[in-house]
Amino acid sequence: MSIIFRLDRVMADRKISLGELANRVEITNSNLSILKTGKAKAIRMSTLEAICRELNCQPGDLLEYQADEIKEK
């Protein structure tokens, strides 16, 4: 996937655990884990807003675009 969620990096910077962030954002640990491991297919605006609020960051700090490699024939 071209969009990478850099939650693990920001969490490490803020020294916050997965469980604590999940508690503060009010989502389950498993859902936060899905986000952290990049398995999520979509993110709600409300979730993004809550994560940014708790981690005191901008959405741009969490999301990163990486162009897909073009496969040569």
Partner: peptide
């Protein structure tokens, strides 16, 4: 369903 389950 998969999309719904993986929407956080």
């Amino acid at each position: 369903q998969e999309e719904h389950d993986l929407t956080v």
